[in-house]
Every structure is written in structure tokens, then in C-alpha cells.
């Protein structure tokens, strides 16, 4: 059973199903975020449905590119024999 689940996420033959499932989940989460009650909103963004999706995506992209920028242009990434 576990092997089949793991295979589903690895095998090439399920690639299309995987992608469909993934987009379906994204859509469902986005819809659900519009439906839940927001009584205790403390901050402005708490009142915006869909904020978390935008923020999550933005954070991810920002982290990838800022880090890679620091790594390549900022000189943090070095050859493996740097200290030898």
C-alpha cells in the first residue's frame, strides 16, 4: 500500500494524474479560503481571502531567487575544495 502511494509520486506513468490532482488541490484550497469565517482577523491580510496563497507563492519565489543571488553573485557558494 505504502509502496503504491510512493510509486504514484515517482513513476513517470502517473505524471499527468499527479499534475491534475495537484491543480485540483490548489483550486480547492483557494475556494475554501473564500468560504471560511474570518471573525478574529487581527491584521489587514487576515481579512483578505487568498492572501496566504499569494504570500506562500511569493515567499517561495523570493527565497529561491534571493538565496541563489546571494550564492552566485554574493559569493557564498564556493568550490568544494575551497577550504583545502
Amino acid at each position: 500500500m505504502i509502496k503504491r502511494v510512493v510509486d504514484f509520486f515517482g513513476d513517470e506513468e502517473y505524471a499527468r494524474q499527479r499534475r491534475r490532482l495537484f491543480y485540483l488541490v490548489l483550486v480547492l484550497i483557494a475556494i475554501a479560503d473564500f468560504l471560511v469565517s474570518r471573525e478574529h482577523a487581527e491584521y489587514l491580510w487576515d481579512r483578505l481571502p487568498g492572501w496566504s496563497a499569494v504570500y506562500g507563492f511569493g515567499s517561495c519565489v523570493l527565497l529561491i531567487f534571493v538565496s541563489k543571488f546571494l550564492g552566485h553573485q554574493g559569493g557564498l557558494m564556493r568550490r568544494e575544495d575551497y577550504y583545502d
Binding site: 484550497i29 496566504s52 496563497a53 506562500g56 517561495c60 550564492g71 557558494m77 564556493r78
Partner: peptide
């Protein structure tokens, strides 16, 4: 779930940028 799954979307879209590189970090 929104934060996490849309992070996954970012991962899927920018997978190439994340390819590990044979380096060490200072």
C-alpha cells in the same frame, strides 16, 4: 494549506532554479 501548497506551486514552476550544485556555502 494555502501557504504550503502554493509554495509547492512555486517549486514546480521553478524546479530548474533549485537544481543542487556541486558547491559548499560560506
Amino acid at each position: 494549506l494555502g501557504v504550503l501548497m502554493f509554495t509547492a506551486l512555486g517549486f514546480v514552476l521553478f524546479l530548474k532554479a533549485l537544481d543542487p550544485e556541486n558547491t559548499i556555502s560560506l
